[in-house]
Write a protein that binds this DNA or RNA. Structure first.
Lengths: 238, 238
DNA sequence: ATGAATTGTGTCTGACGGACACAGTTAAGT
DNA sequence: ACTTAACTGTGTCCGTCAGACACAATTCAT
């Protein structure tokens, strides 16, 4: 497809308006903002160029005057939805507290824009905001004795946990009338039918359904990751 | 959509063949196997009912005699591609070695079927194989003093890391002629242009591009997670 | 032998991303 | 002032997608 150079230009290039020709009635920022709110409201699958154009009061093909294609548009949506990276300079408690706050902010953002997880996938051109998030995460680890590669791997590990959890808990299915209620009923039915084959899973499900749930999983994973990182930092400090 | 009951029936139900009518020329297993190899070869996006049917030498609509829709087919593909869970009973070294092997096996499977990560998303009906993988992972932690919820969160944490890394490294883009070569050139160009805004990121990229890469990230994350889990296990053992 | 159930097929629909030509608008160059 | 080139928005068209539906052919139970 070779969509990467155009995406990089849109994300990082300067918006030099041409001089001749009629003034554009739309703006790329406006299109991206409308697309984001539409994806937030109805999911990424419901976002089509046709419906987006109708929402803006224009025809579908007019959008292609602003973006070369849908792929580039979603790349812009991603970076805009991420928003500016948080400022962690005021956080006391060293790298651990800073990265904890960083992870929670990212989690909040992914809850606000669930489709981001589906878009921020695979090798891609990072935008200014995504790069700033990465920068902030890496900077939080600058005081430790970790190498550059280790710091990068650490940030990847944390984002992977946050994003993976967001992907599992906020994926489509929230629009159906009985989203996880019916699913839970089906799964417990299956597990009781096959309790002898999956004793551990049945027990874990039974004990987990009584306790709270997903926020616990987020904090649990972060605590384990930070504990493991702390051990490595302590080892490097010797 | 209400696709969950049908999916559960296909995944867990017994294949009772009706008695009257012509014998089916195809089988669901055959369709699923062909779909898997096609998704392996050309990616999930290239898998359409039309092309799948052509590969099988039948018309598109004939497939709908075997599966109610594409969603149910992908659910079957997922469980079939996961394959049987590994046997960890022979692994020496306690829960840590067992879970390490478990994670590596999962990693290998995701490398073989990269599209699995895109399918195994969100709340869904788990199939027998997926359930067996979960069961095996939970069983590896049975010796520790962790609660059921903690064991579940631990397995979720590990799978999240493995899957997240697989999603980032094996996503589409492998089909283009200059997959990550061009991307890397673009990103380094951007980073050198904005080195003052992202000093940590620029340094980390520079030092990371010289070292090996993704397999390191996998082992790095696993080591940190296991270290963190070991601390919790030790705490519970007191 | 007859009728019901089941399979594979052909045709059709609505939605999708996107190519392309065209008319209208604006500013630069003469 | 006038021409001309560049740019914007629109309408039309294409190929592909998942799926609905009716129909003919096949097979078994009665």
């Amino acid at each position: 497809m070779d969509t990467q150079p155009r995406t990089a230009e849109l994300l990082w290039g300067s918006p030099d308006r041409p001089k001749r020709g009629p003034k554009p009635a739309l703006s790329l920022e406006q299109i991206v903002a409308t697309a984001i709110s539409m994806a937030d409201a109805e999911g990424l699958a419901a976002l089509s160029m046709q419906r987006l154009a109708e929402d803006l009061g224009f025809t579908k093909m007019s959008l292609y005057r602003y973006t070369p294609g849908k792929a580039e548009l979603t790349a812009l949506m991603l970076d805009a939805a991420l928003g500016p990276a948080p400022d962690l300079s005021e956080i006391d408690g060293g790298w651990r507290a800073a990265l904890h706050e960083w992870a929670l902010r990212m989690w909040a953002g992914l809850r606000r824009h669930p489709w981001v997880v589906d878009v921020a996938v695979g090798p891609r051109v990072m935008g200014p905001n995504e790069m700033a998030w990465l920068e902030t995460g890496l900077a939080a680890l600058s005081g430790t004795g970790l190498t550059g590669g280790e710091r990068l791997d650490s940030v990847v590990l944390i984002t992977g946990h946050v994003r993976s959890l967001a992907q599992q808990t906020t994926a489509p299915g929230a629009e159906t009338d009985t989203p996880e209620k019916a699913l839970n009923a089906i799964m417990t039915g299956i597990l009781t039918d096959n309790a002898e084959r999956y004793p551990e899973a049945a027990a874990a499900f039974a004990s987990a359904s009584s306790s709270s749930g997903q926020d616990d999983a987020l904090e649990f994973g972060l605590a384990r990751i930070f504990d493991g990182l702390a051990a490595l930092v302590a080892e490097r400090a010797e």
